[in-house]
Amino acid sequence: MSRESVRPETMLLVDQSRCVGCHACETACKMENDVPPGPRWIEVVEHETLDTAGNVVLTFLPLNCRHCGDAPCIRACPTLALTRGELGLVNLAVERCIGCGECLFACPFGAPQFGEDRIMQKCHGCLERRSQGLPTACEQLCPTQALKSGTPRELSHHARGARAAAVASRQG
């Protein structure tokens, strides 16, 4: 299998300056996908650090499956349960998974989750919603609009737009 380097059609941009670690994306995702307690397809990680002036500052990072372009988990899976699906999302064929955990050890973000049945489950990128043009569940329901999904082109446009507006208003 040649080395995949196709850029994914859709990604999820996290605006860390807006994420306040309220975990709403977690329960929204769990309700949307009927995920039992235990596995968390998206999880907000809080981190305590010092800012440049030495004050204690909290930063938050919601982490789900990033659907990487060159996904190490696809290569690590012995039973080919992980494949590149529509919109470039990493798709999991649950019935092929034997629950060996290789994907978790390959994933730098710890996205693969294991429930009671010890079979892997993970964020499927809301394929159904995105193919209807809807935002992903976590993006739509995030109280501070810190998540934004879209193609890399859209996201960089969005990020640059926000940055330019902020700079412009500061001069104004």
Binding site: V20, C22, T144, Q145, A165, A166, G172
Partner: peptide, 15 residues
């Protein structure tokens, strides 16, 4: 969280 924080961020992004 819905009111203050979101409107606050909009204000902050406006400067």
């Amino acid at each position: 969280i819905h009111q203050d924080v979101c409107y606050l961020f909009e204000a902050m992004e406006r400067g």
